[in-house]
Amino acid sequence: MHEFLARHQAELVEQLIGWVRLRSVAGLPEREPDLLRSAHWLAGELRAVGFPVVDIWKVPGAPAVYAEWCAAPGAPTVLVYSHHDVRAAKDE
């Protein structure tokens, strides 16, 4: 894994920069299209690395991205929980 990351670091950073540039601010109705774009970006990346099940769940607040890869019976379960949205900053 370390070798792969070292070889592809620049490419991976560029991908993340593109994702972070999406203005995926939750709680602002005018940003809902950006939230959906962010969810679709993440879903596309998960599909690209091989996840056989990838769904976008439209839930209140921000769409959730769900993916599972259950190809190895008896393998450990790993849960990754993260946000692809951010909250609007207040002046104070």
Rank of each mutant, 00 (worst) to 15 (best):
L36V: 14
E45T: 06
E32H: 15
G61K: 04
V53P: 06
V59E: 03
G18A: 04
L35R: 01
R47W: 11
V53W: 05
E68V: 02
P29W: 10
A26D: 12
K58C: 05
P33Q: 10
R23E: 15
L46G: 04
V65W: 01
V54S: 04
E30F: 08
A39R: 00
P60R: 06
C70S: 13
A39D: 01
L22W: 11
L36F: 15
L28S: 14
R23L: 14
A48H: 11
G61D: 03
P63A: 00
A39E: 02
C70D: 13
L36Q: 14
P52D: 08
A62I: 01
L22Y: 11
C70G: 07
D34S: 15
V25G: 03
L36I: 13
L42A: 13
A43L: 10
A43Y: 01
L36R: 15
G44S: 10
W69M: 08
V53C: 07
V20M: 15
D55M: 07
G18K: 03
E32Y: 10
V54Y: 05
G44E: 09
V54M: 03
V20P: 06
A43I: 09
P33N: 08
G18P: 02
F51R: 07
A48G: 13
A62N: 09
R47H: 12
P63I: 00
P60W: 03
E45M: 12
